[in-house]
Simulated scan of single mutants.
Amino acid sequence: MINFKKHSGIYTLKTQQELNISIEKAWDYFSSPENLAKITPPKMGFNITSQVDKKAYQGQIITYKVSPIPFIKTNWVTEITQVKEQAFFIDEQRFGPYKMWHHEHWFEELTNGNTLMKDKISYKIPFGFLGHLAQSVFIKKQLNTIFNYRFITLEKLFNGK
């Protein structure tokens, strides 16, 4: 499920997915930065360029190369700003294609032993009117594609579908 909203020039994307794994296994998988490439569409050319030998921790800086537009690579730098083990972590863009990017990753243990994973992304786009035009023509569609790919990949990995 993907939900988009806009308020005061900030776009918000929310998703959620139930995974047939324990919260411990979910945390282990999603707090490992190297797994991000596995759930990102290959056409994005996503590549971590910094050393990420540890699970997500507060203050961790991660650098990437990504191709948001075919044949155009850009650098992206994020910082893990908050972490509560087996509950949530937050990454924020320090340098990259957005004017602002704040991504909350939430994990909730369900009574059936599964994990409910929720994402909330708040972002602003640069370039004023042209940026908002790009949002409606391109960016929203691209984010939908990324999170739909992720949903399908996680269904195969953890839900046997």
Score class of each variant (00 low, 15 high):
residue 24 E to W: 02
residue 72 I to A: 04
residue 153 T to A: 15
residue 45 G to Q: 10
residue 23 I to D: 04
residue 11 Y to A: 07
residue 88 F to Q: 05
residue 52 V to N: 13
residue 4 F to A: 01
residue 114 N to D: 01
residue 67 S to E: 14
residue 123 Y to T: 09
residue 156 K to F: 06
residue 113 G to S: 13
residue 57 Y to H: 15
residue 72 I to T: 00
residue 156 K to V: 09
residue 35 N to Q: 12
residue 132 H to Y: 02
residue 161 K to I: 13
residue 161 K to C: 07
residue 124 K to E: 14
residue 53 D to F: 04
residue 113 G to V: 11
residue 119 D to A: 09
residue 76 W to L: 08
residue 88 F to G: 05
residue 149 Y to S: 04
residue 115 T to K: 08
residue 58 Q to D: 03
residue 126 P to R: 09
residue 96 G to F: 10
residue 50 S to D: 05
residue 46 F to V: 15
residue 21 I to G: 11
residue 39 I to W: 03
residue 11 Y to V: 12
residue 22 S to K: 11
residue 112 N to L: 05
residue 157 L to K: 10
residue 56 A to M: 10
residue 95 F to P: 00
residue 145 T to W: 10
residue 91 D to Q: 12
residue 144 N to K: 12
residue 23 I to Q: 08
residue 72 I to C: 06
residue 126 P to W: 08
residue 152 I to T: 14
residue 96 G to T: 09
residue 1 M to N: 07
residue 118 K to A: 10
residue 110 L to C: 06
residue 86 Q to N: 14
residue 18 E to W: 00
residue 42 P to I: 02
residue 110 L to D: 02
residue 31 S to R: 09
residue 93 Q to K: 08
residue 40 T to P: 08
residue 151 F to K: 15
residue 96 G to N: 10
residue 25 K to W: 05
residue 16 Q to S: 15
residue 22 S to W: 06
residue 78 T to N: 12
residue 160 G to C: 04
residue 94 R to W: 02
residue 32 S to H: 11
residue 64 Y to S: 00
residue 14 K to W: 01
residue 119 D to V: 11
residue 153 T to Y: 00
residue 146 I to A: 05
residue 143 L to N: 07
residue 141 K to L: 06
residue 150 R to I: 05
residue 72 I to M: 14
residue 53 D to Y: 04
residue 110 L to H: 06
residue 144 N to H: 08
residue 9 G to I: 09
residue 16 Q to H: 09
residue 116 L to E: 02
residue 2 I to H: 03
residue 60 Q to Y: 00
residue 152 I to R: 05
residue 92 E to V: 14
residue 30 F to L: 09
residue 116 L to V: 05
residue 43 K to I: 13
residue 77 V to Q: 09
residue 114 N to I: 00
residue 51 Q to W: 00
residue 122 S to E: 15
residue 148 N to Y: 12
residue 121 I to H: 01
residue 140 K to Y: 01
residue 61 I to Y: 06
residue 100 M to Y: 11
residue 68 P to Q: 12
residue 8 S to G: 02
residue 36 L to G: 05
residue 34 E to C: 01
residue 13 L to P: 01
residue 13 L to S: 03
residue 66 V to T: 14
residue 33 P to E: 01
residue 45 G to E: 11
residue 123 Y to A: 11
residue 31 S to I: 06
residue 65 K to A: 12
residue 93 Q to H: 05
residue 52 V to P: 01
residue 148 N to V: 12
residue 77 V to T: 15
residue 68 P to N: 11
residue 96 G to W: 06
residue 111 T to W: 06
residue 106 W to K: 14
residue 48 I to M: 04
residue 5 K to M: 07
residue 75 N to I: 10
residue 62 I to D: 03
residue 75 N to R: 15
residue 36 L to W: 03
residue 114 N to L: 00
residue 154 L to A: 10
